[in-house]
Amino acid sequence: MADLQKIKDAIMSGKREEVTSLVQAGIDAGDNAVEILEGGMIPAMREIGDKFSRNEVYVPQMLIAARAMQAGLALIEPALVSSGHQPLGKVCIGTVKGDLHDIGKNLVAIMLKGAGYQVIDLGVNCDVNKYDEGIKQGATIIACSALLTTTMPYMKEVVEHFKDTDVKIIIGGAPVTQNYADQIGAHGYSDDANGAVKLVDVLFKKSA
């Protein structure tokens, strides 16, 4: 059996090559891909996310951890697909109409993937039709990002557009606040990527 603790440690310190060789060793030994994913990889990303929230690591450390995880994931993906392994849920994410900033949006996407969710990345400059496409692909939660004070009000239009549906909208970005989320009737707000994962966890649990 692959050493799950070692895989976890290697992901958290961003050691891509070490992750690759440890995961490959596991595959060669006939280990269960789901166990590698759920016992080593996802816990690593959850823990690095918690460290991020506690200001113990920052964006660069999160990014290299995610890159290391992706390297391992690529190796076990075929086995996951053939075993019928399902993600925890589907989330679509996009920066709102008029806004081309994507660093924050990408971070949230990375952390959601790392936590075991399937993420449909709609990119930047998303209008309601684009978010609709994400929902058509099976997402039940929409994550909206905005960096600009002038694009932030579009979040209200997104909330309005989906208000008579079961779709949940969560929002975030530099100018966005919990106050604003309450004002426009969004289902949640987070001020960092790890918080967004926690928010999605809660929303999926509620809908289950």
């Binding site: 961003g14 964006v59 660069p60 990014l63 290299i64 890159r67 660093i103 990408n106």
Partner: peptide
Amino acid sequence: GTDIFMQMF
């Protein structure tokens, strides 16, 4: 671009 974050390592 954001590659700088990776290059820092």
